[in-house]
Design a protein around this nucleic acid. Structure first.
Length: 549
RNA sequence: GCCCCUGUAGCUCAGUGGAUAGAGCGUCGCCCUCCGAAGGCGAAUGCGGGUGUUCGAUUCACCCCAGGGGCGCCA
């Protein structure tokens, strides 16, 4: 809107200078307020092409600029060639009407309308409870899905269940060993217990409740175990507020999809045999030292990697325009191999994006809680979730960019004060709701041009600018698959609102509910816009926007 | 052996090829006769080191140093 308008106006001015080549003008928010509302460094870009100094070009653009809509208050050239634009304050306030008009759709766009996206996330192995490491992928994948929906995609949220392979056998053996302990029978399987942790004992007990003294073979126990664990994991996801649209089982992939894909790869000449195993080894320089096994030397069974190629090839067959994998960073070596295999199979690797997230460290105050997956003393996601509640849980996991290591401070997440960013944002929302109640329970008020004159306090114009920036934040976050941008946006804008709110204590011009019905209506409209944006942002993150706390 | 991530304020982290690098916590000092103090105001401190690319590097590339983590017919 405002940005687009300005962009067109600048581009028009540029084309008046040099008819030959058109540049795409990038509009940005300047670093400091004094430089205006928007700026562009297009003069720097043109400097090389035109063989002139940026400053000169900027001056020329400034003179060629036509303020066609009466939108602009001033255009200036600063620094080495920045063009700075200031929008008329009343135009900002007027634009707020868009927020009340669009309501919950404000921030969303139809940019990718008609396209389908698949987001695969969590996909934790059902050989143990969902731990905090896997769990980061939950809110992350869910929020990425919501972001993609906000820019118009039709999104499928998918969980890939790794329900075959040696891990399951090992789980079965472990349950068997504990089972035999329980009923006082000598171990028949491997003496080693394999999987550690109380949950295996628990599974053995539950198996005992079902089978009694007739101990089933380990593979049946493994099956029994993963079914229970899978159910638990899906319940954990629900408790995190995540609802998957689709569950794909590796068991099905291996049956139907893997054999033809392996055939194709072999026929494509990208495999060879070594030490009794079948290897994937495309004659592709960048993969030279990244060969890996497709079929095991011992059993001839396809590896996880082989099945994963087949699974991804099947994703392509399902016709998505964009596929996103949200994976733990331990899969980093896996990504180029999958892409290479997909390329061999004739698929476009650029449609598949992978978000790799680093693992989570749990802290209580200053103390880091030790965690080791192998040793069995991992931290179960559900414990943290139950302890801090779903909103702080999600918010904290979304607060950092995925590739950053994340320290999850449990004590902070549990605090119900402004120290805790979740409560801070939710509190502002509740506070606005409270103001509406004070005003007699009015709902969102529509914009009316009469209001402009009553909403020109500096903080109001500033907040209007920030609220109207929301769609771009959403767009950027979606493009970068990075929900934490939304979280930071919410924290920053909440602060602006709280400062504004507080000024009403000493200055009646800031009061929302007052004796002046015109002022009250205008201010209610205004804080209603703030509330709407907070609500929409929280919605994308999957966090509730409470009316009262 | 190979690979990935991270080094920004006392702490936890944002951010950007450009104009004066931000926030929260913590610290210190203030503010409730007030639309919710579950809040607000003010103060102080910083881009790990080096080389290169560039008109311009905290941002990009390379090297080094320091943390964290992963992979090698598990998934």
């Amino acid at each position: 809107m405002m940005r687009d308008q300005l962009k067109k106006m600048i581009e028009a001015a540029v084309s008046r200078l040099s008819s030959s080549d058109s540049v795409s003008v990038e509009i940005e928010r300047p670093t400091a307020e004094q430089f205006g509302d928007f700026s562009t460094h297009v003069a720097f870009v043109l400097a090389k092409k035109m063989g002139k100094k940026p400053r000169e070009i900027a001056d020329e653009i400034q003179s060629a600029f036509v303020n066609s809509e009466g939108l602009i208050e001033s255009v200036s050239v600063a620094g080495a060639g920045f063009l700075n634009f200031r929008i008329k304050p009343e135009k900002w306030i007027e634009s707020l009407g868009e927020i009340s008009k669009k309501g919950s759709r404000f921030g969303s766009s139809e940019f990718h309308k008609g396209k389908k996206a698949l987001v695969e996330f969590v996909s934790a192995n059902p050989t143990g409870p969902l731990h905090i490491g896997n769990a980061r992928g939950g809110p992350l994948g869910d929020a990425i899905s919501s972001l993609l929906e906000a820019v118009g995609y039709q999104v499928t949220r998918e969980f890939y269940v790794n329900d075959v392979g040696g891990q399951i056998d090992k789980l079965g053996e472990s349950i068997l060993a504990h089972y035999q302990n329980l009923v006082g029978v000598a171990h028949t399987g491997k003496t080693e217990l394999g999987y550690q942790g109380n949950y295996v004992e628990d599974l053995a007990r539950r198996a005992y409740e079902k089978y009694g003294k007739n101990i089933p073979p380990s593979d049946e126990l493994g099956e029994f175990g993963i079914n229970l664990l899978q159910t638990e994991i899906s319940q954990d996801c629900l408790a995190m507020g995540i609802r998957f649209d689709s569950w794909v089982h590796e068991k099905e992939i291996i049956k139907k999809k893997t054999p033809p894909v392996l055939d194709l790869l072999k026929k494509s000449g990208v495999t060879y045999e070594k030490e009794g195993a079948v290897w994937f080894a495309p004659r592709d320089d960048f993969l030279a030292d990244r060969e890996c096994v497709l079929e095991r030397s011992d059993s001839g069974r396809p590896t996880y990697f082989a099945n994963d190629i087949a699974y991804h090839a099947a994703k392509y067959d399902r016709g998505f325009d964009l596929m996103v994998n949200v994976w733990g960073s331990n899969h980093h070596g896996h990504v180029p191999r999958i892409l290479a295999a997909l390329k061999v199979l004739g698929h476009d690797p650029s449609l598949l994006k992978t978000v790799l997230y680093q693992y989570v460290r749990i802290k209580r105050g200053a103390e880091a809680v030790k965690m080791s997956k192998r040793g069995g003393n991992f931290i179960v996601a559900r414990e943290i979730l139950d302890e801090v509640g779903v909103d702080p849980f999600r918010f904290f996991l979304l607060l950092k960019s995925p590739e950053a290591h994340l320290d999850f401070d449990i004590d902070l997440a549990k605090k119900q004060s402004s120290e805790n960013p979740v409560y801070y944002v939710q509190y502002a929302h509740a506070r606005i709701c409270s103001i509406f109640k004070k005003a007699g329970g009015a709902g969102q008020i529509d914009f009316d041009p009469e209001m402009i004159a009553r909403l020109l306090l500096p903080e109001e114009v500033k907040i209007a600018k920030e609220l109207l920036d929301f769609p771009w934040v959403v767009e950027k976050a979606a493009r970068e698959l990075n929900p934490h941008l939304v979280a930071y946006y919410l924290m920053d804008r909440t602060r602006l609102f709280q400062h504004y709110y507080d000024r009403a204590r000493e200055d009646p011009r800031y009061r929302v509910v007052s004796d002046d019905p015109q002022q009250t209506r205008a201010k209610l409209f205004f804080v209603g816009c703030v509330r709407q944006v907070l609500r929409n942002g929280l919605g994308i993150l999957g966090i509730s926007a409470p009316e009262q706390m």
